[in-house]
Computed example of a mutant assay.
Amino acid sequence: MFTGIVEETGEVLAVDDQDGGRRLRISTTFEGLEDGQSISVSGACLTVEEFVDGEWFAVFLADETVAKTYLGTVGVGDELNLERAMPADGRFDGHVVQGHVDTTAEVLDIEQVGEGSASEASGTSSSERSEYDGDWFYTFSVPASQDQYIVPKGSITIDGISLTVADLDDDEFTVAIIPETYRLTTLSEKAVGDPVHLEVDVIAKYVESLVDEEAVENVVGK
């Protein structure tokens, strides 16, 4: 289990496409790694196959992972959000994140407000947004398959980042990004039209399952 608190970003150092999936080698400063350890890679829970402590680790993406995520399109030089699994005695600072990507969404709008004069970032390249000088609001599409799980002020995971839904429309939602999140994650590199990984709040899924079971029992009981 993860918390959605990204520890660092890692650069893709090598990509090996092969039958049945692809293998990524990713840079890291993590030490004390172990074979079989779980790491959230931009929200996808992947297993460490090889590593050099404090330098890099390698993971394999099965066909299902390639199909469900955008990791099948990343290349050498791309940055990814990294978080190690939460230890049993660790602090729980985000929300329950499984590392199971539900779907991908699209960045629809990026707006900067706050310090200095407010500015629209929709047509601004990521290189021109390298310095933080205000709050950021990112708007994403709402995939039809997940719209029932996204609620105002509810938790959502975007590229492995624990965030809160600030606003929700029929087919889009907005999150507010604080300076630390902007600085530490790959959101600062995103542009309008880019894909992101979504993992909805698993508690909402459990509630839906319980409600559905209760409805069935009521019908059967009658």
Results as ranks from 00 to 15, higher is better:
T28A: 06
Y70V: 04
I156Q: 03
I26M: 10
L80M: 08
D17M: 08
V66M: 13
V142F: 02
L46W: 06
I158S: 03
Q18F: 02
D53L: 11
V192Q: 09
E199Y: 01
L210T: 10
E217M: 09
G4L: 13
A144R: 11
E7I: 10
T73Q: 12
G160A: 11
E208S: 12
T181K: 12
G36L: 07
T139S: 13
V202M: 12
A85C: 11
A118Y: 01
D102M: 03
I5P: 04
C45T: 11
I161D: 04
I110V: 15
V216W: 08
R183L: 04
W56T: 09
L71Q: 06
V196C: 08
Y132W: 13
Y149V: 07
A105F: 01
T174G: 03
Q146W: 02
M86L: 13
V107G: 10
E34R: 15
D89T: 15
Q112M: 13
L71T: 08
D167K: 03
D109V: 01
S125D: 08
D16M: 03
D63P: 00
D78Y: 12
G36F: 04
M1H: 12
S125A: 07
E55F: 01
I156G: 03
E128C: 06
L198E: 01
V192L: 08
I39T: 06
Y206N: 03
L24I: 15
V52A: 13
D169N: 08
V66G: 08
K205P: 05
D78C: 13
N81H: 04
V211Q: 14
T174D: 01
Q98R: 13
I203F: 11
V113H: 01
E79G: 00
G99D: 01
E128V: 09
S27A: 15
V113P: 00
S38F: 05
V66K: 08
S188W: 05
E128P: 06
G21D: 05
A121Q: 13
D212Y: 12
V165Y: 00
S209I: 05
T164M: 01
Q148L: 11
F51T: 14
D53N: 15
T65M: 05
L24A: 14
K68H: 07
F92Q: 04
V96K: 00
A88D: 03
L33W: 05
V74H: 07
D170R: 10
G72H: 06
A67E: 14
R22L: 11
V48H: 08
K153M: 03
T69K: 04
L46R: 11
P143H: 04
S119M: 13
E79I: 07
V101R: 04
E131K: 14
D19H: 05
